[in-house]
Nucleic acid binder design. Structure first.
Lengths: 263, 263
DNA sequence: CACTTCCATT
DNA sequence: AATGGAAGTG
């Protein structure tokens, strides 16, 4: 038996909407401490890692570790049935192993809704991702990063990040044009302005290039968190991370492009 | 000579837009007391019945009963020419029997517009629909019913309604999932809350199933009225009714699906 | 947060 | 032409 209740269905909606274009079917790992999901995107280039800790839920009960494979398209359909501030209970009953049930309650309307979604078998290749130290960690407003990616995509297929202590530069170049965007990290470390500012925590300079198409997929999660954290080292996958209400995260991993010298 | 003037073209726009996908050509019965329309949908499964009583019009003149066949696509085109709060005069002149004319006036712009639409011959099979007593009459916010139909369509082709004194339940089930929506009728019969609430007037319990595709067509009329009335008896066509400003109605009739037992 | 409208897509 | 998504308004 697994049962977990979210105060509002909106959160889960946002999460699923931001990964469903990347991953069509995903295994949810339900355990005592958290609800997790890890999956490669369909072309096996990017990795999505989601963690929703117990603290996010109003109630949480997980009798035994279990893995539930779900079509995210169907899950999105189910969540679309909820109003944003409906309560959302996720329920899996061991006696009814084919399905997962989402119960939405709108108390002010005396309305109850039980949406059932069929489960599926997914071989969950739980990739151990090493927690590693990165040469450079940048935090910036997620809407700002979203715009950077959108703007660079105008002319380019790839996004180059060059970061020093004094500056972070995003750039892209294509046949018909190019674009370079620079941010100086905000001097004041005031927590006040933090949300609006770009901060750079740098051990050594970084110069690294990614497919912008995937980046633009990732930034669909911008609504989850005001701030995005980019963790980078040369020649290592970037981590694009959105915190979820202090009790979880949605992380995207993307390997750098191998630069074809002059081609 | 037939001449009837509506205070705003918006009303007629809404009406035509909500039935034009169901019925492509329709006969308007103009008589002394009302402008009526009855038509089967193109696949002869659903019936649309519209009545616009004299009270809806600012002026109304109908010398003799007459039937005007119109392509609703063309009528929609004509109405699209009007601003929503233009005045709308519908005019048919016996000396010009090929056409109907819509005159739109935007007084604050001193703008006048005459749109002429060609008439067509339609054999109007005026089906006498018996006024009957239904086992169950439910009133609920039309937007709510619209959402119910939309949500059920996510996983199912059909909508089952089960209604008792204490509860109304809409449900649907498909291969990949299902959905059950329950409403407890609002206890307070306060007219105040009436718009927000679900009311059930039940003589005997009902359990009946319909094609959701047609229901979703019907609910396009939700903008006409805050409340929808569902009149049901087992094995009898449902009536989905939207009142039009206390002086008319738009009703949809749909025969129940014959349940294939276990298949 | 929800509704409405508009735009883009299939 | 219809559906679904996005944006702006109340």
């Amino acid at each position: 038996m697994f049962e977990a209740k979210l105060g509002s269905a909106a959160l889960l909606k946002k999460i699923i909407d931001s990964i469903r274009d990347l991953v069509s079917d995903a295994p949810f790992d339900c355990s005592e401490n958290a609800l997790c999901l890890q999956a490669m995107d369909s072309s096996h280039v990017a990795l999505v890692s989601l963690k929703l800790e117990v603290g996010l839920f109003e109630t949480y009960r997980c009798d035994r570790t279990i893995n539930l494979g779900i079509s995210l398209a169907n899950m999105a359909k189910a969540l679309k049935c909820a109003n944003n501030d409906d309560t959302c209970l996720i329920k899996y009953d061991d006696s009814e192993t084919d399905n997962i049930v989402f119960c939405f309650v709108d108390t002010k309307r005396d309305k109850t809704q039980e949406v059932t979604v069929k489960l599926m078998d997914i071989d969950s290749e739980h990739l151990g991702i090493p927690d590693q130290d990165y040469a450079c960690v940048v935090k910036m407003p997620s809407s700002e990063f979203q715009k950077v990616c959108r703007d660079l995509a105008m002319f380019s297929d790839s996004l180059n990040v060059t970061c020093t202590k004094a500056n972070i530069s995003f750039s892209g170049k294509g046949d018909t044009g190019g674009n370079v965007i620079n941010y100086a990290p905000t001097a004041s470390a005031d927590d006040e302005d933090k949300k609006e500012s770009v901060s750079i925590d740098l051990r050594e300079p970084v110069n690294i290039t990614f497919s912008i198409k995937y980046m633009n997929q990732f930034t669909k999660a911008s609504g989850l968190c005001d701030t995005v954290k980019l963790s980078m080292s040369n020649d290592v996958p970037i981590v694009v991370e959105y915190d979820i209400e202090e009790n979880g995260y949605l992380r995207f991993y993307l390997a750098p492009k191998i630069e074809d010298e002059e081609n």
